[in-house]
């Protein structure tokens, strides 16, 4: 349906960080002048680091929690309702095999 979706996803994941990534390999040995330039930031307001936290998806907060377990389960559905559990019936061997077969195949 969305022709541009492919590109969007790519951009979302790699796009914005392009410039940051390419310049990340530096020589550290001669980094003393680097340290000095930090001084200007000494009085940086405390909230500044947090300001860049936009969406979770963005992952722009450099101190994001390192956690693989998927914890964002805000939208847990009520699977007790018949309408809900019937909607995934065909993902089970008890469902319609021909339907499941189709969705499992890839078009290419």
């Amino acid at each position: 349906i969305h022709l541009g979706q492919n590109k969007n996803l790519r951009q979302l994941i790699y796009g914005r960080r392009e410039s940051k990534l390419t310049s990340s390999t530096d020589d550290v040995q001669g980094s003393s002048e680097d340290e000095e330039s930090d001084e200007g930031e000494f009085f940086k307001p405390k909230g500044e680091g947090i300001k860049s936290v936009r969406e979770d998806f963005d992952g722009d907060n450099v101190n994001n929690d390192d956690c693989s377990k998927f914890l964002n389960h805000a939208d847990v559905k009520n699977w007790i309702e018949e309408e809900k559990y019937e909607s995934i019936r065909d993902r089970f061997v008890t469902g319609d095999w021909s339907k499941a077969g189709r969705s499992g195949q890839d078009s290419d």
């Binding site: 390999t25 530096d26 020589d27 550290v28 040995q29 907060n61 101190n63 994001n64 929690d65 390192d66």
Partner: peptide, 17 residues
């Protein structure tokens, strides 16, 4: 020789990095 370090920021993806 001197070591070339890849410079990164923050604690994110610590294990993976």
């Amino acid at each position: 020789g001197k070591t070339e370090y890849k410079r990164l920021k923050g604690s994110q993806s610590f294990r993976l990095r």
